[in-house]
Design a binder for these strands. Structure first.
Lengths: 221, 221
DNA sequence: CGAAGTGTTGATTAAGATCAACATGCGTGG
DNA sequence: CCACGCATGTTGATCTTAATCAACACTTCG
């Protein structure tokens, strides 16, 4: 399912990826279609990724198919860093997604020579850890309504508080992120809609307008 | 509640702490009594810690007191690394605990000069992240029995499979680690005992003998 | 057009939480 | 040393939240 857009698109990188890898590293652009796998749990970790367009979910599965989504990645986000040789989870494009890819070994070579890059890398991993710590609190101790409120606030913040945010993920994805069923997510959203805390636009129920962020913040524990 | 054992006990460190901090760093030994706080969420992060004796829980609280324990730390484990200036969670001694303490700033100074130390540090944070990822799967998607089975297997592994393991933490601690109530933890343990998968020794119900690790592994999803 | 995917809502069930009672261990102070 | 109070742990009864089962509407896409 991997489509190389433009093999000749190798060029010096910029942005956060440059900060960790140094200015000399090169990268390529790739496209993934909606639902396609970027890498699988247990696969050899070859690249690191930065999203330029689209959205990605990373998740783990139990043997019987139960799924826990660790995190959603949006444009600008990087993922796929691994300490070991293999990926610890699966990454999939939620919608049509464009990513920049850099060889992991290039990163490793570039790193020790650049103390600043090394610090950036630690900062990046720490950021993920911090998110995971907050998410453990959510998963272990929040109610369904609190979870959904927290999710909306997280997305609102990461999308820079647009008037109407367009969620790339389905109700099932949200449920698997929050440790709920899709029905429970749907019911919680209906409650928030009935309470005039949010409003849906369009026909797909994925375009959400936040009417009362304060009330929402109070619903999140 | 902090008791300095021996102020004059500064000496060169060894072990994992030396690996990240370099051989020149110094550290002190401290004791904390059962239940006392080592550092609090939001406090300025001054030190990093390595346990030489005892056990520590790190947790986050919601405003109404609901608690989520991120992790248990046992002898040899290090904790208290922070990227930011403040601690993201609280750390408490579960039982009488002895720790080695090193100034965080010493670590930071020692780091850039030592590429190997920097890599060790990344490895350490990654290890924590990996644990958090596995724990999110547990919290979000496992049943109570699966959670308790996974907990026992984790502790068994970390205590190097002793004949009888002595759990330092209470049922409530276990519950707050697994996102359950203490009653549910107690019931799950009773089921495992009735199924001859484990046996309790002594009077406190904290000394656990693993009778059938394979069966236990099958109960963990 | 039909089929599959997505989302909402209602009815019912089940897992785990809550409420409660009781047993035992342990530390403290008389 | 014992008595008391508190912490800890188990078990039972009941309740609540979210899961499950189900029906239906709408969209999208081949």
């Amino acid at each position: 399912m991997l489509i190389r857009v433009n093999t000749a698109s190798r060029r010096p990188i910029d942005g956060p990826m440059a900060a960790v890898a140094g200015p000399r590293a090169l990268c390529s652009e790739f496209k993934y279609r909606r639902g396609s796998e970027i890498f699988g749990e247990g696969e050899h970790a070859e690249y690191i990724y930065q999203i330029s367009y689209g959205a990605v979910r990373t998740y783990k599965l139990l043997a019987d198919g139960r799924r826990q989504i660790n995190s959603f990645h949006l444009p600008g986000d990087m993922f796929g860093f691994e300490n070991s040789e293999t990926h610890r989870f699966t990454a999939e494009a939620i919608v049509e997604t464009h990513v920049r890819i850099m060889k992991r070994c290039n990163l490793l070579e570039a790193m020790p020579s650049e103390a600043a890059g090394s610090k950036k890398l630690i900062g990046f991993v720490t950021e993920n850890l911090q998110h995971a710590e907050n998410h453990m609190l959510l998963l272990g101790r929040k109610t369904s309504l609190e979870k959904v409120a927290a999710f909306l606030l997280e997305m609102d913040g990461r999308l820079a508080h647009p008037d109407v945010m367009t969620l790339p993920m389905s109700r099932r994805d949200i449920a698997d992120y929050l440790g709920l069923t899709l029905e429970t997510v749907s019911r919680a959203l209906s409650i928030l809609r009935d309470d005039k805390i949010l409003r849906f636009h369009g026909t797909t129920q994925r375009e959400v307008e936040m009417l009362d962020r304060e009330k929402l913040a109070k619903l999140d524990a």
